[in-house]
Simulated scan of single mutants.
Amino acid sequence: MPDICVIGGSRYFGKRLIERLLNAGHRVTVVNRGSSAPPAGAFHLIADRDDERALEKALGSRTFDVVVDQVCYTPRQAGIARRVLGPRTRRYVMTSTVEVYEYEDSASPVREEAVDPRTVAVDPAADLPYGEGKRQAEAVFAGDPSLAFTAVRVAHVLGGADDFTGRLAHYADRIREGRPIAVPAVNHPATYVYVEEIADFLAWAAEREFTGPVNAASHGPLTTAGICAPIEARLGRRAVFQEVEVGEVSPFSFRRSYAMDNTRATALGYTFRHSSDWLERAVDETLGGRA
């Protein structure tokens, strides 16, 4: 079975990914700073990915069939990974984000070609926001023609009792207490994915050979009201939405439209579910006993 290296990934959907790879019989090596242990059965290497020498030393002479990088956020991190891990693997899969499309505002779902990482300028010294950091990290890997590289652009993830973001709790608290939920005057829908399904997709992608960016998102974009609907049903109370022209809005409320098109994933052989198939379960898992 293939040797797979997972960088980071001992929390949330990364943990689920590792479990799926192990259950499929893969030999899995997890590299992180030691703050959390990987699931039982994975080999654990402790190293700071930002320290090039330490990473090289920790890896020793190991090579891999696939690297799945769960925690690459900047072009500097990508540069270190490309130099240290690029020669040790035949394929590199980076967990990217829908936020690479943060400059888009498209009425129709955005396809991968809207952001070609080969054309993105890179500034390794800059202090970059999340979406731009991911864009430039993709660009570093895509600029190496010797490396088979895949960027999985992950939609907003929902579900799981271990969701640490607090975003669904934000809505539940306001609905329960009758406080307003701030939304833009024009509140655009966005694409989402269930935590279990993104783990499935990443495990599936690690076993394939395709390269280039691929959007990972469920069918059925959701608005803020759509996300709140199962919370309203759970609590027996209606959400109060307050439109704001400027200033901060609630999580998952968007002034621009950049829902992702998942046609490429379908063509490659993976069929995502519709958000209506899992949204209620995701809310129940995350909110647990909160009422």
Rank of each mutant, 00 (worst) to 15 (best):
P221Q: 09
P2K: 13
V186W: 01
N187L: 09
R281L: 13
W204V: 11
P87F: 05
E52P: 00
A291W: 08
G226Y: 09
F141K: 01
V183E: 09
L158S: 06
D65W: 07
Q77A: 14
A282Q: 02
D65N: 10
D65G: 09
G212Q: 04
Y103L: 14
D116R: 04
R264Y: 07
S276M: 07
V152M: 15
R174H: 12
E56V: 01
S250R: 06
E112M: 07
D69E: 13
G236V: 10
H274T: 03
D50R: 15
D163T: 02
I198S: 08
A182S: 13
W278Q: 04
R33D: 11
E285W: 02
A233P: 08
A291T: 11
D200C: 11
A239L: 11
I46Q: 14
A172W: 10
R256P: 02
A206N: 10
T266Q: 13
F254N: 12
D51P: 00
R27E: 05
A24R: 15
M260C: 05
S61Y: 00
A58N: 07
V71T: 14
V6T: 02
V30D: 01
A291R: 15
V67I: 14
L85F: 09
L287Q: 03
K57F: 03
D127R: 11
R208T: 14
N187A: 12
G8W: 12
P221F: 09
R62V: 02
V66W: 07
R234H: 06
V240Y: 12
E102L: 13
A185L: 15
R11L: 09
L287W: 09
I227E: 08
L45G: 07
G86Y: 06
V93F: 04
S35Q: 11
D162F: 03
F201R: 13
Y101D: 03
A126I: 11
L222R: 07
E197S: 04
V6G: 04
R238V: 10
L55W: 05
R174W: 13
Q70D: 11
F64Q: 07
P251K: 09
P189D: 05
A239H: 06
A78V: 06
A155I: 03
F149Y: 15
